[in-house]
């Protein structure tokens, strides 16, 4: 048993999985409240990566930052999260709010329109060339190891900050008033509004938080893997959606678990199965179907009880 290979695959699976988990969280939160699949979420992630790049360059660039590297990274995260949160709120206000009582499939097309708009605006404003975060110069690629387990600094940063954000989100949803309001609204929107909860504000906050997480995911991805371009949101969005469904769509811990699972599944499939990398999407989908067959509402999802 080649432990070194196993640990390498696990680490890269967890890193990518953290990114997917953050994207999946955005999907699941919005679905829980609105029963809407936000197609444009992947493109919010892409905008987050670009916002992080701009923050980096306004602060002097990777080679010669005007503050210490760690402060720059924190500021990049904050800027991307706030910008994406705002973007999410704006998208909700314009593309989804008028469609709140429309058949479920109408907001899907609106979301598609937003996705086209964001992707091509990014192409127009930022150009077609790939941009690089140049993490090597910014925070270096020092690797820490414990026996056979190797972790580079960007990977460690990604996993730790993802865990931190997830803990923060769980606390927010469980302990704060707005979190309680979110839970109530996702349980029964009409009853919540009758109880005096401002549903519009709750939904806007949900979008803000979900999109901020996507923005953070964008910055994280770019720090570890380097390249950003206008089309990077498409595949990531699809994977995030898959992760959300695997974990049970509507369930926050489910999205976290689903994301990590998808990341690990891709990694192990690539590493161990024949032609694993070529067919990795298929393997992940097969895993998804298997899970759905065993647990139809996803790993941690609740079975939807329909009142007749």
């Amino acid at each position: 048993m080649n432990w070194s290979l196993f640990w390498d695959l696990t680490v890269s699976g967890l890193t990518l999985g953290s990114v997917y988990a953050l994207i999946a969280l955005g999907y699941t939160m919005v679905y829980g409240i609105l029963k809407l699949l936000n197609f444009a979420h992947g493109d919010v992630y892409m905008i987050g990566a670009f916002m992080g790049w701009f923050a980096l360059h306004w602060l002097g660039g990777p080679v010669n930052p005007s503050a210490t590297a760690w402060l720059v990274v924190v500021l990049m995260f904050l800027f991307a999260m706030v910008a994406c949160g705002g973007l999410g709120v704006a998208i909700e206000r314009f593309a989804y709010r008028p469609l709140r009582n429309a058949p479920r499939i109408a907001p899907l097309i609106s979301a598609l329109g937003v996705s086209f708009f964001l992707q091509n605006s990014a192409l127009l404003l930022f150009g077609a060339s790939f941009r690089d975060y140049d993490t090597f110069h910014l925070i270096g690629a020092k690797t820490y190891n414990y026996k056979d387990i190797f972790l580079s600094v960007p990977q460690l940063l990604t996993i730790v900050s993802a865990i931190g954000l997830m803990i923060g989100l769980t606390l927010l949803v469980a302990r704060t008033k707005i979190g309680k309001a979110m839970r109530a609204t996702s349980f029964d929107r009409e009853a919540a509004s009758m109880m005096g909860i401002d549903v519009d504000r709750v939904i806007a906050s949900t979008f803000f938080i979900g999109s901020a997480l996507a923005g953070a995911a964008g910055v994280m991805f770019a720090l570890v893997f380097g390249q950003i371009y206008h089309f990077m949101g498409f595949l990531a969005g699809l994977k995030g959606f898959t992760a959300a469904v695997i974990g049970g769509i509507g369930s926050i811990p489910g999205a976290m678990l689903g994301g990590l699972l998808v990341g690990l599944a891709e990694s192990y499939a690539t590493g161990y199965l024949p032609q694993g990398s070529t067919f990795q999407n298929l393997y992940v989908f097969a895993l998804l179907i298997l899970i759905i067959l065993i647990r139809p509402s996803g790993l941690l999802g609740k079975a939807d009880v329909k009142k007749v």
Partner: peptide, 11 residues
């Protein structure tokens, strides 16, 4: 881009 905006407006 305009197609996307049009889809949002029409829906």
């Amino acid at each position: 881009l305009l197609l996307g905006a049009l889809l949002v407006v029409l829906m």
